[in-house]
Design a protein around this nucleic acid. Structure first.
Length: 274
DNA sequence: CACGAGACCTGTTCGC
DNA sequence: TGCGAACAGGTCTCGT
């Protein structure tokens, strides 16, 4: 499910709690179970069990699409990839079909990692930089400026869509928010980054931040069978709207494939520069 | 260097 | 109704 706004939403749910699930900050870990071996990236499962036991959750943060749980001595990182989700529930429930890992707390609750497609990954490390060190800037960070984006765009000749999906270029965007940001900025997904002017870069920078901020305000997007209460899917401008009118000009939204990803854009508003 | 294809996985939806 | 194909919010690795 998750791109930056959805991961941010889940992060807040875990930190602050919701109407249906309690916050898990400061809980003490009793033990853990890995139900699908490949969900654990590192360390080996026995060491994971041994090290995580007895640590408590001192902070919950997001970096790009990673969720970082600061523990007493280590950091637990979880990437939800395509279909992952995190649930807080009583530890005595029988695991659901798609539960891949369980972190059991001393107070009888547990954090369950549910992931039908099994692409998600878990790391337990002393130094999180080992996992997230290669990420590009955080798009909503005050330190990330339009000038930064312009400079980064100029440093390569890649097409905008695959470039913005590259987490080492910018952290957190995925298929939805790249399409939404490019539409808002009126830039073609196949435009070459080096041809983007300063003015266009400023527009793209503002569009990325606006898309992400609006999505976070609506608790992210919920599509298909994964519904977490987010409502941003009702405000999509381009993503998933093939054949429907562009909100700016009414031209039907087109779908092409770029780097094996479905790509949605308005052929009128988003034209390649000649 | 930049891009495309194939892997990793399961589930849903679409077209005939 | 049934069945295969296409598709899905991600990322890695390999070959050209």
């Amino acid at each position: 499910m998750p791109e930056l706004p959805e991961v941010e939403t889940i992060c807040r749910y875990l930190r602050d709690g919701t109407a249906t699930q309690p916050a898990i900050l400061n809980r003490v870990i009793f033990d853990a179970q890995i139900l699908w071996a490949r969900s654990l990236a590192t360390p080996l499962v026995e060491e994971f069990y041994r090290r995580i036991r007895g640590q408590s959750i001192t902070a919950i943060n997001r970096r790009g699409k990673f969720i970082l749980f600061s523990l007493t001595t280590d950091t637990l990182l979880i990437h939800l990839r395509m279909s992952g989700d995190l649930l807080v529930e009583p530890a005595d429930l029988a695991p659901l079909t798609h539960h891949r890992a369980l972190i059991n707390f001393q107070d009888g609750m547990r954090l369950a990692f549910n992931d039908p497609r099994k692409f998600g990954r878990i790391w337990l490390v002393e130094h999180p930089a080992l996992v997230i060190g290669g990420l590009g800037p955080e798009p909503l960070d005050d330190h990330f400026t339009a000038a930064d984006l312009y400079e980064r765009l100029r440093s390569t000749r890649r097409r905008l869509k695959p470039l913005l999906l590259d987490q080492s270029f910018l952290a957190g965007l995925g298929n939805i928010y790249v399409d939404e940001s490019l539409h808002l900025a009126r830039l073609h997904p196949l435009e070459v980054s080096q041809r983007v002017s300063l003015e266009q870069a400023i527009r793209l920078w503002a569009s990325i931040r606006q898309s992400l901020n609006q999505a976070i305000l609506r608790n992210g997007a919920s599509i298909d069978w994964v519904y977490r209460g987010g409502e941003f899917q009702n405000y999509f401008r381009a993503y998933g709207r093939v054949g429907q009118p562009c909100p700016e000009c009414g031209t039907p939204i087109q779908r092409i494939t770029v780097g094996q990803r479905g790509t949605h854009f308005c052929p009128q508003c988003q034209q390649l520069m000649g």
